[in-house]
Amino acid sequence: MTKLRCQTQITVNAELIAAYQAASSPHSIRALASDLEAFDRWCRRNGRMTLPATPESVADYLDARAGQGAKPASLGRYKASIAKVHQLLDLKDPTQAELVRLRLRAIRREKGTAQAQARPLRFKGPVRDVERDKPRGLNVRALLEACGGDLPGLRDRALLSLAYDTGLRASELVAVEVKHILEALDPEARLLAIHRSKGDQEGEGATAYLSPRSMRAIVAWTEAAGITAGPLFRRVQVRRYKARPAVKGRRIDSISSREKWDLRKTLPKPAVPARVEYDIGDAALHPGSIGPIWQAIIRRAFDRGALGDLTADDLARLLKGISAHSTRVGLNQDLFASGEDLAGIMDALRWKSPRMPLAYNRNLAAEQGAAGRLLAKIG
């Protein structure tokens, strides 16, 4: 992190900083550093002091970020980061001033607080009865069936199947290792030990169910890739070589002295068939790669005709909302549509608060609520 612009000499409590670092996840520390660097750059450009910041500076900064398109949820994080650094340095917290609260409330009033939701990847797509209805639209079942039998296809099938079963976030998904897969009562299924998650920073741990479908996909991937330990999901680099026809050689007495320096040009070359080689990495996938992998799987499935009731325009529209969170949202909605109560959904997806599962199910709740049921009957 760059040196922040300070008005006076500030005494740093090294013990407090060390305690904060030990108590926080690496992601939280990186986010705090990024937020503070952005605030410091703005302060320098506008002739303000970063530390200690005044309420006017914080309020103006939040206004400026809102003008650049920052969402209210992001503004709340920036405010919290500024507050945290002041607390850690034993400085008066400027974010508690009424001016900051009112300016942030005004931004929320103008822009609204609803967050954009990832488009769900439900197992059978947008169906009412998850057990009896046939799959339609964008659905996980079709995507799984469309994954190829090569190494990238085997990995993607195992990755997507496990992601849907568990509802893991991207960072949790790439952290899965072979040793985390445990025996279950069902000999064809397994359990997944989740040692740490976004909602479990203290490492209390949790367990998720892996279906026989997912285990078949995982076994196929690990056996083909030769993975017996370490990260389960890894980068697969593909090298494609074109075919080369046979080349007849030349007689030695036809070679000029100018050509003798490189006899390879004159030797006969056998035909070489086209081939594909794969290089499997040792490290886990990056969390930022999960969303693009989902999008690539969807494009391939569409090209292979697996999503037959979607048009090219449908595909372009749907892809815009697909992110790494889509499988988590999809499982959340399928659990709701199957009749699970809020407590069961929160337990299955390891939610600490009902706010997000309720938000993810808002549209389904409207469709399947009292008004939705009545209007569906009367047309």
Rank of each mutant, 00 (worst) to 15 (best):
25 S>R: 10
271 A>E: 12
335 L>P: 02
352 K>N: 12
150 D>R: 02
185 L>R: 15
100 V>I: 03
228 T>R: 15
28 S>H: 09
269 K>M: 12
297 I>A: 06
300 R>V: 08
365 A>E: 08
371 A>T: 09
210 L>C: 08
173 L>R: 02
213 R>K: 12
146 A>V: 03
117 Q>N: 08
289 S>I: 03
52 P>C: 07
92 K>V: 14
229 A>E: 15
350 R>M: 14
250 R>H: 12
59 A>G: 06
190 R>M: 11
71 K>W: 03
210 L>T: 09
90 D>K: 11
279 D>H: 11
136 R>D: 00
99 L>R: 03
94 P>R: 00
282 D>C: 02
218 I>L: 15
66 A>T: 06
240 R>T: 13
116 A>Q: 10
205 G>Y: 00
234 R>A: 01
314 D>M: 10
159 L>D: 00
142 A>D: 03
208 A>M: 06
81 S>R: 08
293 I>F: 03
308 G>H: 07
321 G>L: 09
62 L>Y: 06
359 A>G: 01
239 R>N: 13
106 A>R: 15
225 A>H: 09
96 Q>L: 13
164 Y>L: 05
48 R>D: 10
321 G>C: 09
1 M>P: 08
94 P>K: 00
365 A>D: 04
262 D>F: 04
49 M>L: 13
133 D>P: 05
179 K>H: 07
150 D>N: 13
358 L>P: 00
17 I>V: 12
198 K>H: 03
130 V>C: 01
161 S>K: 05
52 P>Y: 04
50 T>Y: 08
49 M>D: 10
59 A>R: 01
142 A>Y: 01
69 G>S: 13
309 D>G: 08
37 E>V: 14
151 L>Y: 02
358 L>K: 11
131 E>N: 11
128 R>D: 07
296 A>R: 14
174 V>G: 02
27 H>T: 04
132 R>P: 00
41 R>H: 15
111 K>V: 09
87 Q>E: 14
255 I>Y: 06
61 Y>C: 03
206 A>V: 00
51 L>K: 02
20 Y>G: 01
262 D>Q: 12
314 D>V: 12
133 D>Q: 05
97 A>L: 03
114 A>H: 08
278 Y>E: 05
89 L>G: 00
301 A>H: 08
138 L>C: 07
207 T>C: 09
14 A>I: 05
80 A>M: 11
196 R>P: 01
227 I>S: 05
158 A>F: 00
354 P>Q: 11
291 G>F: 06
292 P>R: 05
95 T>S: 07
207 T>A: 10
342 L>P: 00
105 R>D: 15
107 I>V: 15
249 G>A: 10
338 S>D: 04
82 I>W: 00
251 R>D: 15
145 E>N: 08
195 H>Y: 07
330 G>I: 05
8 T>I: 08
88 L>A: 03
73 A>M: 03
328 R>W: 10
139 N>I: 06
12 V>E: 06
132 R>Y: 02
259 E>D: 15
247 V>Q: 14
269 K>H: 15
26 P>H: 06
